[in-house]
Amino acid sequence: MVRDRLNLAWLQLLCLAIATLAASLLLPGRWLVDALVLSLAAAKGRVIMLDYLGLRSAPPLWRGLLTAWLTGLVGLAGLAVAFRALV
């Protein structure tokens, strides 16, 4: 059961990595690419947190705290990208 879940998580991460590569190579607009790549990074981080770190069965408080941390991290990265575009 756990092995199947980890295999599925690995497959999800592989697909998200391919989507990230495709977005960065094929999409024309920088804003769209940056937003999509950051969104895909957040999705990959969530898969890693839930499946590889074993937080799927953790109390909701821990999952919420780490999800908030991940969201804040991606938000700060988005602000850095926006600031870079303005300067």
Rank of each mutant, 00 (worst) to 15 (best):
M1Q: 11
M1G: 15
M1W: 10
D4Y: 15
L6N: 05
L6C: 05
N7K: 10
N7E: 14
L8W: 07
Q12M: 14
L13R: 02
L13F: 05
L14I: 13
C15V: 15
C15K: 06
L16W: 03
A17G: 06
I18G: 05
A19Y: 02
L25C: 05
L25M: 09
L27Q: 06
L27G: 02
P28W: 03
G29K: 08
G29W: 13
R30N: 07
W31A: 11
W31T: 11
W31N: 06
L32N: 03
V33Y: 02
A35H: 05
L36E: 00
V37G: 00
L38H: 00
S39N: 11
L40V: 00
L40F: 00
L40I: 09
L40T: 00
A41F: 10
K44P: 00
K44I: 09
R46Q: 08
V47I: 15
V47N: 03
I48M: 07
I48A: 12
D51W: 12
D51H: 13
D51N: 07
D51F: 14
Y52C: 05
G54A: 04
R56H: 10
R56S: 12
A58D: 12
P59C: 08
P59F: 09
P60T: 03
P60V: 15
L61H: 08
W62L: 15
R63A: 10
L65R: 12
L66P: 01
T67N: 14
T67R: 11
A68E: 11
G72K: 03
L73D: 08
V74S: 06
L76P: 04
L76V: 11
A77R: 02
A77W: 07
G78L: 08
G78T: 05
L79W: 13
L79V: 14
L79D: 08
L79F: 10
V81Y: 06
A82E: 09
A82M: 11
A82K: 04
F83R: 13
F83S: 12
R84T: 09
L86F: 14
L86N: 09
L86M: 14
L86Y: 12
V87K: 08
